[in-house]
Write a protein that binds this DNA or RNA. Structure first.
Lengths: 250, 250
DNA sequence: GTAGTTATTTGACTTGCATCAAATTGGATG
DNA sequence: CATCCAATTTGATGCAAGTCAAATAACTAC
């Protein structure tokens, strides 16, 4: 309660409304008409703030809601019976978490805040009711879920066919464009996740991730000090991700 | 036209209606009330029959419809600019193809018939209209898409963490349970896809797939002659897929 | 049937990345 | 600021699976 209040004051003069949210052009409001925004605001709940490492939900939590990241970032992962973790995604402000969980009783993954993170909560029963009434919103939901399938296919492709360098270049570029969407620097940002999470996500050993980072650094492609990263040569990175395709071509 | 007619006669005494379709308990009709079935039947189009190798759609086809497999099987893959292929899925009767394409103008992948295959076509504009009216159908669509995200995450997990043997065991078990759902033998079936497709899908070299098949055969776990496969020891296969987790545990 | 083509199998060799081990850095806490 | 624990980096070594090569085997079409 106190936290929520405090948060609302952080971006000064912003109420907890979709209409005023700086992310409305990335998030669900993007899909609804001006005059339908009210009905979306009615169902969205101002979520609490999570500290780094806190779970938003885990695989034993009954599935109730999807969450939009408002600030901070979230890591989702599947934890198998034996306790091994597979990171399935990283979510940045404006992105929707939980779409993979709409087919079961519990969440299909565990969502953990990578840093101090605030979210908006969309209870799915109400959301489904609303998408039944607002064709544009329904259409947008289909688009979002479809996009998530595509992303996941891209990841599978990366994992099955690309080298360590290519995978890491692809991740850096993905982060870069997601920062850019939010009008932040696409070349100068701070990684929200640890090397370990990168390694797990990309199906590599931590040591390999570390080695590739230093290799890129020595080549003058990036500059990295801890989690601070500067992409010095975007084109070189794009070239790395395409390298593989080129090789197959001839 | 002639083809559609001919097909309708193949399963004798079955009209081209969801109500009579033997797959209605797997496909979209599963979600709609008896008395709403009519509206679903109104929008579904009896698709044509595709011969082995024919494209149902490819990445340049404007996205219009999702397709339910009626008989036969379909392989979807992403073909990059350079022509390399990444198989993203295999679809069997009762399964819905195209859910990954709902966020763009064209299809996100290419769908190819692996054998003589018939489909039902669901134009998405009409489908979205209908799901807006039938909450149960909408809910089912969300479930299906969500399931597809999960499947894709599972695949990514398989690709990033598991050995060749584990991947192949997992695929065989997946096929097995999908045959079982259709009340066919879970231990004795014919692979719809070539070794090459299996290799591509699982991120392996064809040679490796072949070697694992013979290894499994020598261990008495399966019996394989060409595409005919018999799973002799389901438990052993399940053990293989869990092997990895066990190892991590201790 | 037979030639031509493609799919599958088997063997020999190579390699990218994992693994193991240990040093170094960075953050958190009292 | 000193201690502790976790994260990151670097080096040395081994192996699973890729690659190359070549021999079947299975289809196709004439």
């Amino acid at each position: 309660m106190a936290q929520a209040l405090r948060f609302r004051q952080v971006p000064p003069a912003l109420k907890a409304s979709c209409q005023q949210c700086s992310l409305s052009n990335l998030c669900l409001p993007l899909a609804v008409e001006e005059n339908d925004l009210g009905s979306l605001e009615e169902i969205v709940q101002q979520g609490r703030i999570y500290n780094r490492g806190e779970h938003i939900f885990d695989q034993s939590t009954p599935f109730r809601s999807c969450f939009a990241v408002k600030s901070g970032s979230i890591k989702t992962s599947i934890i198998s019976e034996s306790g091994e973790e597979q990171v399935t995604g990283f979510f940045m402000p404006g992105e929707l978490v939980g779409l993979d969980s709409m087919s079961g009783e519990s969440y299909a993954c565990t969502a953990k805040a990578l840093e101090r993170t605030s979210v908006c909560e969309f209870p799915v029963d109400k959301l489904e009711e609303l998408t039944g009434k607002l064709p544009d919103l329904q259409h947008h939901m289909y688009r979002l879920m479809s996009q998530e399938i595509q992303n996941s296919h891209q990841l599978a492709m990366l994992l099955s066919k690309n080298t360590a360098e290519e995978r890491i270049a692809a991740l850096l570029l993905s982060l870069s464009s997601r920062f850019q969407r939010r009008r932040m620097s696409p070349t100068n940002f701070s990684l929200p996740m640890a090397r370990n999470d990168i390694a797990n996500f990309l199906g590599l050993a931590v040591e390999t991730v570390s080695r590739v980072f230093t290799r890129f650094q020595n080549q003058g492609v990036i500059r990295a000090r801890g989690r601070e990263v500067e992409l010095l040569d975007l084109e070189a990175l794009q070239l790395v991700t395409r390298e593989f395709s080129r090789q197959c071509n001839q």
